[in-house]
Computed example of a mutant assay.
Amino acid sequence: MSTWPVYTGTEEPHDGVSRLPGPPPWRAFDGGPALPLPLQEDDSASPDRKHRASTYRATRESIELVNAALVLRRPLLISGPPGSGKSSLPYAVARELKLGPVLRWNVTSRSTLQDGLYQYDPMARLYAASKAAGRVRPAESGDGDPAGDAIEDHLRLGPLGTALLPYERPRVLLIDEIDKSDLDLPNDLLNVLEEGQYEIPELVRAARHTPTARLMVSGSESRVAVDRGRVRCRAFPFIVLTSNGEREFPPAFLRRCVPLHLRRPEPDHLEAIVRAHLGEGDGETKRMIETFLERSSTGELATDQLLNAIYLSRIPGLEAESRQALAASLMTHLGPAEFHDF
Score class of each variant (00 low, 15 high):
Thr3Ala: 13
Trp4His: 12
Tyr7Gln: 01
Thr8Ser: 13
Thr8Gln: 12
Gly9Pro: 07
Glu11Asn: 05
Pro13Trp: 09
His14Tyr: 02
His14Cys: 10
Asp15Gly: 10
Arg19Val: 02
Leu20Lys: 00
Pro23Ala: 15
Arg27Leu: 13
Gly31Arg: 04
Pro33Lys: 06
Ala34Thr: 03
Pro38Val: 06
Leu39Pro: 13
Leu39Tyr: 00
Gln40Pro: 14
Gln40Asp: 15
Asp48Trp: 14
Thr55Ala: 14
Arg57His: 13
Ala58Gly: 02
Ala58Phe: 04
Glu64Ile: 05
Leu65Tyr: 01
Val71Thr: 11
Arg73His: 13
Leu77Trp: 02
Ile78Tyr: 00
Ser79Ile: 01
Pro81Trp: 03
Gly83Glu: 01
Lys86Asp: 00
Tyr91Ile: 00
Leu97Ala: 07
Leu97Met: 09
Lys98Arg: 15
Lys98Trp: 00
Gly100Ser: 08
Trp105Ile: 03
Thr108Lys: 09
Thr108Ser: 15
Thr108Gln: 10
Arg110Glu: 15
Arg110His: 11
Ser111Lys: 02
Ser111Asn: 03
Leu117Ile: 08
Asp121Val: 05
Pro122Asp: 11
Tyr127Asn: 06
Ala129Pro: 00
Pro138Met: 07
Asp143Ala: 13
Ala147Tyr: 04
Gly148Asn: 10
Gly148Ile: 10
Ala150Phe: 12
Asp153Pro: 01
Asp153Asn: 14
Asp153Glu: 14
Arg156Tyr: 01
Pro159Gln: 04
Leu160His: 04
Ala163Cys: 07
Leu164Gln: 04
Pro166Lys: 03
Tyr167Glu: 00
Tyr167Thr: 00
Glu168Leu: 04
Arg171Asp: 01
Val172Trp: 00
Ile175Phe: 05
Ile175Leu: 14
Asp176His: 03
Glu177Phe: 07
Asp184Cys: 01
Leu185Tyr: 08
Asp188Val: 02
Glu194Leu: 12
Glu195Leu: 07
Tyr198Lys: 10
Pro201Cys: 07
Arg208Pro: 00
Arg208Val: 12
His209Gln: 09
Pro211Val: 13
Pro211Asp: 13
Thr212Val: 15
Met216Thr: 14
Ser220Gln: 08
Ser220Tyr: 08
Glu221Tyr: 01
Val224Phe: 11
Val224Arg: 14
Ala225Cys: 04
Val226Trp: 03
Gly229Glu: 03
Val231Ser: 02
Cys233Thr: 15
Arg234Trp: 05
Ala235Cys: 08
Phe236His: 04
Thr242Lys: 02
Glu246Gln: 14
Arg247Ser: 07
Arg247Cys: 05
Ala252Leu: 09
Ala252His: 08
Leu260Tyr: 09
Glu266Trp: 00
Pro267Gly: 09
Leu270Thr: 08
Ala272Met: 06
Ile273Ser: 04
Val274Cys: 11
Leu278Gln: 15
Gly279Arg: 05
Glu280Met: 06
Ile289Pro: 05
Arg295Pro: 03
Ser297Ile: 02
Glu300Thr: 15
Thr303Leu: 04
Leu307Asp: 05
Leu312Ser: 13
Arg314Asp: 12
Arg314Cys: 12
Pro316Cys: 09
Ala320Asn: 10
Ala320Ile: 07
Ala320Val: 09
Ser322Val: 11
Ser322Ile: 07
Gln324Arg: 15
Leu326Arg: 04
Met331Tyr: 11
Leu334Lys: 12
Glu338Trp: 04
Glu338Asp: 11
Glu338Arg: 14
Glu338Tyr: 04
His340Tyr: 07
Asp341Leu: 11
Phe342Ser: 06
